[in-house]
């Protein structure tokens, strides 16, 4: 089993340990719940503005999981071992990102369907919304890896990660919300895919560079 798969399997398993995906998933649904509480139950208002707000809930849920992605490895010495693997650190960081996307991202994406319907999204658009959430989560995690890596040495760095990473969330949220509100879905989906690919390609490179500095 090569280092990439070994790291992926380990992180995937660790995400499931200790209550696993319950917390991020619950947080996503809870944040989505806040929308009608804030905007009122009035259906026409919700139908007009509700669906895109899933993206705020998804962003918050991802932000909540980022702090421990690298901090734990730095503290318990696992980062040193990753540096000694034949596989480049960038690949191992990508593996950790992929594990986070599948273990935490996919459940949130699937929960996006009922959440979209709850926020009065038209049923025929739900499939596009779920697809866009999948791409958006990849973009969030790609960018989030950089934030998590540069703050790995900071105690209680969670809020700092949120501040650092929020600007990078702007493009995925813009195009993801466009899909949710039904504005030329195909264009928005394709650009969103571009954002996701960019983040997945560049994020691990920057994150690995930061982690090498953390290990000094």
């Amino acid at each position: 089993m090569n280092p990439f798969l070994a790291t992926f399997r380990r992180d995937f398993a660790l995400h499931w340990a200790g209550g696993g995906v319950l917390a991020p998933l619950g947080y996503f649904l809870g944040a989505t719940l806040l929308v009608p509480l804030a905007m009122g139950p009035e259906r026409t208002l919700l139908a007009a503005a509700g669906p895109p707000l899933i993206w705020i809930a998804a962003a918050l849920a991802v932000l909540a999981t980022l702090e421990r992605v690298f901090q734990a490895d730095l503290e318990d010495g696992s980062l040193d071992q990753m540096l000694l693997s034949p596989a480049p650190l960038e690949a191992l960081v990508l593996a950790k990102g992929a594990a986070l996307w599948i273990a935490v991202g996919v459940p949130i994406v699937l929960a996006g369907a009922p959440a979209a319907v709850a926020l009065q999204a038209p049923p025929e658009r739900v499939a596009a919304i779920v697809a866009s959430l999948g791409l958006g989560l990849a973009a969030f995690i790609g960018a989030g890896l950089v934030g998590a890596a540069v703050t790995a040495g900071v105690k209680r760095g969670g809020v700092l990660i949120a501040l650092i990473v929020v600007p990078f969330f702007a493009p995925p949220i813009i195009f993801g919300s466009a899909v949710a509100s039904g504005d030329d879905i195909d264009a928005a989906l394709s650009v969103l895919a571009g954002c996701a690919l960019g983040a997945v390609a560049l994020g691990p490179i920057a994150a690995a560079a930061a982690l090498r500095l953390q290990a000094e």
């Binding site: 089993m1 790291t7 380990r10 398993a13 660790l14 734990a72 318990d76 071992q81």
Partner: peptide, 22 residues
């Protein structure tokens, strides 16, 4: 530090290291 993950079993650690270091 020992480089161990509290939630993973001893056997899981050995399998992980076998994969990581080849």
């Amino acid at each position: 530090q020992n480089g161990l993950k509290g939630a993973a079993s001893a056997d899981a650690h050995v399998r992980y290291w076998a994969g990581l270091f080849g």
